[in-house]
Simulated assay, not measured.
Amino acid sequence: MPLLPGAEPYQHDGGEIGVLLCHGFTGSPQSLRPWGEYLAAAGLTVSLPRLPGHGTTWQEMSRTRWEDWYAELDKSFADLRGACAEVFVMGLSMGGCMALRLAEVHGEAVRGVVVVNPSVVNDVPLLRMAPVLKLFLRSVPGVAGDIKKEGAVEIGYGRTPVRAAATLPRFWKLVQADLDRITQPVLVYRSPQDHVVKPASVEFLRERMGNNLEIRELLDSYHVATLDNDASAIFAGSLDFISAHASVPLTKDS
Rank of each mutant, 00 (worst) to 15 (best):
Y157G: 00
A225C: 09
D146G: 04
E203D: 14
L179V: 01
L213K: 09
E154C: 08
L227F: 12
S191T: 03
W172T: 04
P185C: 07
G145N: 12
V188S: 08
R170F: 02
G151D: 13
V162Q: 00
V224A: 11
S221C: 06
A231P: 01
K173W: 10
A200R: 06
P161D: 03
N212T: 13
V202C: 07
A164K: 02
V153E: 13
T226A: 10
G142I: 01
F235N: 14
G156R: 02
H195E: 07
L213M: 10
E217N: 09
V162I: 14
G210I: 08
A225H: 05
D180L: 07
A165N: 04
I234Y: 04
G210W: 11
R208F: 03
V162S: 03
L137Y: 07
V197R: 00
L133N: 07
P199K: 03
N212W: 11
V143C: 01
G158Q: 09
L133Y: 12
G156E: 03
I155C: 03
V175K: 08
Y222M: 13
S139I: 01
P141L: 01
G142Q: 08
L213I: 11
L218Y: 01
D220N: 15
I215F: 01
P161F: 02
L137P: 01
L205M: 15
G156T: 06
L187N: 06
V224L: 14
G156K: 00
E150D: 12
E217G: 00
V140M: 15
L137I: 15
G210L: 06
G151Q: 13
K173D: 13
